[in-house]
Amino acid sequence: MTHGTVLLADPDRAAVVGAVVNNNPELGSDMAGRIVDEAVKYLAAVADSPQPLVPSRVVDEGWHTLILHTRVYQKLCSQLGTFIHHTPEPRDPSRHNPDAITRTRQAIVAAGYTVDDALWLAPDDTTIPVAASCTHGPGGPEGSCTGNPDGDGPSGPN
Score class of each variant (00 low, 15 high):
Ala111Ser: 15
Ala9Asn: 04
Cys145Ala: 10
Ala15Pro: 08
Leu80Arg: 14
Lys41Ile: 03
Leu121Lys: 10
Val109Thr: 15
Leu68Pro: 01
Pro138Ala: 14
Trp120Cys: 06
Asp60His: 15
His85Gly: 15
Arg95His: 06
Gly18Phe: 01
Ser144Met: 02
Ala100Asn: 00
Val54Leu: 07
Gly137Glu: 09
Gly137Val: 06
Arg91Glu: 11
Val109Cys: 10
His136Gln: 13
Gly153Asp: 01
Asn23Tyr: 07
Val115Leu: 14
Leu27Cys: 05
Arg103Gln: 15
Pro98Cys: 07
Ala39Leu: 13
Gly140Val: 11
Asn158Gln: 08
Ala45Pro: 13
Ile35Asn: 11
His86Gly: 05
Ala15Gln: 14
Val130His: 05
Thr87Gly: 08
Cys77Ser: 14
Arg71Phe: 06
Tyr113Cys: 08
Gly147Trp: 01
Gly62Pro: 04
Ala122Leu: 05
His96Phe: 15
Gly139Tyr: 02
Leu53Phe: 08
Pro138Lys: 10
Arg57Leu: 12
Asn158Thr: 09
Asp99Cys: 03
Ser133Gln: 13
Leu76Ile: 03
Gly140Pro: 05
Trp63Asp: 00
Asp117Thr: 05
Ala100Val: 00
Glu61Phe: 02
Thr87Arg: 15
Arg95Ser: 12
Glu61Asp: 13
Arg103Lys: 13
Gln51Met: 09
Asn97Pro: 03
Pro123Ser: 13
Val40Phe: 08
Pro149Phe: 06
Met31Arg: 12
Thr65Gln: 15
Cys77Glu: 03
Thr5Tyr: 07
Gly137Asp: 13
Arg13Phe: 14
Thr104Ile: 04
Gly143Ala: 05
Asp99Leu: 14
Glu61Ser: 09
Glu26Trp: 04
Gly156Arg: 01
Asp92Asn: 14
Gly62Cys: 06
Asn97Tyr: 04
Asn158Ile: 04
Arg95Trp: 05
Tyr73Thr: 11
Val59His: 07
Trp63Pro: 00
Met1Ser: 09
Glu89Thr: 02
Pro93Leu: 05
Leu68Asn: 12
His86Val: 05
Gly153Tyr: 00
Leu53His: 05
His85Thr: 11
Ala15Trp: 10
